[in-house]
Amino acid sequence: MDRAKAIADKITSKHPGTKLEWVKPRRLKVSAPASMIKDVALFARDSLGFDHISTVSGVDWIAKNALEVVYFVGSTVPGQEGFVLALSERVPRDNPVVSTLIGVWRGAEYHERETHEMFGLNFQGHPDQSHLFLPEDWNDLPPLRKDYVSPGR
């Protein structure tokens, strides 16, 4: 817990715009505004050793009219492997444009592509945002949005 807190403090003191959402043993979640997420990501990778992308998730906060994208990043630095940094940003639902973080973690490419098709988030600078899992002719709402209702329900 202390160590995760220490890591979080490093981020928040270096980048004052970021906010520590929560910290648990070996887990910390930091949210950043869209304009500085890339800098925070680079700082986390180069200075804090979070170099191993685990997965990218999204959350549709329909009541708050926001879409959240969360990058879960692990580490390969010896002694720090168990820690996972969750780096999140929120964008409005009607204009969900975020910038891609492939330049920071190359492995994020397919995860971002998946988040794009499932939430309709637009990753600016992403080389290929075609459908990865959905059928080619999918023309409904992105399925994981809360206002999309599955046809069986």
Binding site: L134, P135, D140, P143, Y148, S150, P151, G152, R153
Partner: peptide
């Protein structure tokens, strides 16, 4: 019949 996935958006029933 679609089985467990009866309410999935991407599965044939």
């Amino acid at each position: 019949t679609g089985g467990l996935y009866f309410d999935s958006y991407n599965v044939l029933r």
